[in-house]
């Protein structure tokens, strides 16, 4: 797999890069701690008044929060920086250097950047998840763990595809920096299971920005709420979205080279 080989080399370079700024590790740790505290306080405030939210118990919501932090870490460490770099490259004209390389351009633009310290959130998310599972008192079935992993992977692919589609729009409209803020605002909504939102917002969070699949569905897998048809749907949607993203990316590239103009 040449994609994995490339990813490994860039991961190595990225790690070297980030190790030069060790202070960022502490900053990230602080940021993660603050975010976690705010999340926990919010959660306990809600459960001060009630015992369940839209059918989710406190421990289950903690699990959702854990997945939200974990996925947020993956997005911030691996997906977002690459997309930002792509936008920058389109703006500066340095995308040319990608296109003259004898490797798949999409693979290359997807693995070039890593924010190593954002992976702190992946660890924090896993710890929160662990605590939630202990509170739930459930013994983890291997099957549930597998379903969780699969759902998480599907969610990540969907978020990646969503980002690539947005970023490919950079070929048409050059100013897209605001998309980051928009995305982060919407992703913040994923802290709660999408089921608690009104129907129109649920639709938005499921099919426009796939936050539901990135956070709620994996959490459901872990808390034994997930039925297999939802998981199958997640897989199919992930694949479709990925193919769509590739199509949009290629159209964007053709546009960049002026083939369709």
């Amino acid at each position: 797999m040449s994609v994995l080989r490339l990813a490994y080399h860039y991961l190595r370079i990225g790690a070297l890069n980030e190790l030069q700024y060790r202070i960022n590790f502490w900053l990230q740790l602080m940021q993660s701690a603050v975010a976690l505290t705010v999340g926990l306080v919010g959660l306990s405030l809600v459960f001060y008044h009630t015992t369940d939210v839209a059918g989710w118990s406190r421990a289950e919501l903690l699990a959702v929060m854990g997945v939200h932090i974990l996925m947020g870490g993956l997005i911030g460490a691996l997906i977002q920086p690459n997309m930002l770099r792509l936008m920058e490259d389109v703006k500066q004209g340095t995308l040319d250097f990608v296109l003259i390389k004898p490797v798949d351009a999409q693979a290359l633009i997807s693995v070039r950047e890593i924010r190593l310290w954002r992976l702190v959130d992946v660890l924090v998310g896993m710890v929160v998840l662990g605590v939630a599972l202990v509170q739930l008192g459930e013994t983890l079935q291997l099957l549930a763990l597998f379903a969780f992993g699969l759902a998480l992977a599907c969610g990540a692919v969907m978020i990646y595809s969503f980002w690539l589609i947005l970023t490919s729009v950079a070929f048409w409209v050059i100013r897209v920096d605001d998309m980051i803020n928009l995305f982060e605002g919407i992703y913040a909504a994923g802290r709660w299971p999408v089921g608690i939102y009104p129907a129109w917002l649920q639709g938005l969070l499921t099919f426009v920005v796939p936050v539901a699949f990135a956070v709620t569905v994996p959490a459901e897998a872990l808390t034994a709420r997930l039925d297999s048809s939802t998981l199958a749907l997640a897989c199919v949607l992930a694949l479709l979205l990925f193919l769509l993203a590739r199509l949009v990316w290629r159209t964007g590239l053709r546009r960049y080279g002026g083939a369709s103009a």
Partner: peptide, 18 residues
């Protein structure tokens, strides 16, 4: 692509911090 290269004097592709 394996047999050609392009150098642009006003743009660079090296890793800045390394």
């Amino acid at each position: 692509l394996r047999q050609m290269t392009l150098v642009m004097g006003n743009r660079n592709q090296l890793q800045w911090d390394l």
